[in-house]
C-alpha cells in the first residue's frame, strides 16, 4: 500500500471496499467483456478508416518486403527483347500531358550552353557531356504509350540516343545493377541495368520532332517504354552507374521501384 499524504481534498477515511471484493469475479468478467468488445470495435474501426495501420513500422516492414519481392518478380517477367508497341504518327498527343510533383509555373529554365550532364560511379570516362555532344550522337525515334502510375496514358513520340549506346560510349560497367539519375528540380530516379539496355530506353532530346519543351524535360530526359512514367526522369543533370540501390523521388515515397509495365 502506498502511503497517502494528508490533503484537504481527500476524505480522511477511505471508501469501503467490501462490496467490490465480494463481487470481484463479476466486475472482472464485465471488464473483460468490455475490453474484448472494445478491442474488437477499435480494431474494426482502424481497419475501416485505414488510419495509421499503413504507417505503422511493423506494417511498413511487411509491405516493403512485398514490394522488394515484386521487384524480383517483375525483373523475371521483363523480357529484354520484347518491344513496347509502336503507333502511327497520327496517334501522337501534342503537346503531351504535363506531370510533376509541383505546378507548371515552377518548372526551371535551363541554359543549354551552361548545362552539363555529370557522370559518376562505374563509368570509364566520367568527363561531363555538353548538350551539343549529346545531340551529335545517333538518334532513334519511338512512338509508344506512356503509362502513368495514376492510370492515365497517352501515345508520344520521343527521339534521342539509345541509353545502351550512350553507356557503351562512356565505358560504363554493364554488369552493374543500377543506373541512377538526378534532375535539376531535385527529382531523382533509378532503373535496373536490363531495362537500361532495352532498345526502347533512350536519353530523349526531342518530342514530336521538336526540341523538348522544358515542361517535358529539356534539355534531356529519360524515356523508358517498358516502365511507368515516373521512372523516366526529366531535366536530367547527372547520371550514375552503381551497385548500391540509388532509390528515387517516388520510390522513397514507397512507390514500387521496378515498376515495369
Amino acid at each position: 500500500m502506498r502511503s497517502v499524504t494528508p490533503s484537504p481534498f481527500r476524505p480522511a477515511k477511505s471508501v469501503d471496499q467490501t462490496i467490490l471484493k465480494e463481487n470481484r469475479k463479476l466486475v472482472e468478467s464485465i471488464e473483460r467483456r468490455a475490453f474484448l468488445r472494445g478491442t474488437l470495435s477499435l480494431g474494426a474501426l482502424t481497419m475501416l478508416t485505414g488510419c495509421d495501420v499503413t504507417n505503422k513500422d511493423a506494417t511498413q516492414s511487411v509491405l516493403r518486403a512485398m514490394s522488394a519481392w515484386n521487384d524480383r518478380v517483375q525483373a523475371f517477367l521483363f523480357s529484354p527483347t520484347r518491344l513496347a508497341r509502336e503507333y502511327p504518327a497520327s496517334k501522337v498527343m501534342r503537346p503531351p500531358r504535363f506531370n510533376a510533383f509541383y505546378g507548371r509555373e515552377m518548372v526551371k529554365d535551363v541554359d543549354p550552353a551552361a548545362w552539363k550532364l555529370e557522370l559518376a560511379g562505374m563509368i570509364g570516362d566520367k568527363r561531363p557531356w555538353a548538350l551539343r555532344d549529346i545531340h551529335a550522337l545517333p538518334e532513334v525515334t519511338q512512338r509508344t504509350r506512356h503509362v502513368c502510375v495514376e492510370g492515365w496514358d497517352y501515345i508520344g513520340e520521343w527521339t534521342g540516343v539509345p541509353l545502351k549506346l550512350f553507356l557503351e560510349r562512356v565505358g560504363a560497367d554493364m554488369t552493374a545493377k543500377y543506373v541512377g539519375f538526378k534532375c535539376i528540380d531535385g527529382y531523382s530516379g533509378s532503373i535496373d541495368m536490363a531495362s537500361a539496355l532495352h532498345p526502347q530506353t533512350q536519353l530523349t532530346t526531342k518530342y514530336g520532332g521538336d526540341v523538348l519543351h522544358k515542361d517535358f524535360g529539356f534539355p534531356i530526359r529519360l524515356r523508358v517504354a517498358t516502365k511507368l512514367g515516373f521512372k523516366s526522369p526529366k531535366q536530367i543533370v547527372a547520371m550514375e552507374v552503381t551497385n548500391s540501390y540509388p532509390g528515387g523521388y517516388w520510390e522513397n515515397r514507397r512507390y514500387n521501384w521496378f515498376s515495369g509495365i
Binding site: R64, M66, N70, R253, R254
Partner: peptide, 19 residues
C-alpha cells in the same frame, strides 16, 4: 502520410494493392 512521406498516401495504397 504527408508528414512522414510528403505523399498523400498513394505510396501506401500502391504497397497494399501490390501486396
Amino acid at each position: 502520410s504527408f508528414e512522414k512521406w510528403q505523399d498523400s498516401g498513394m505510396g501506401g495504397a500502391l504497397q497494399w494493392h501490390f501486396a
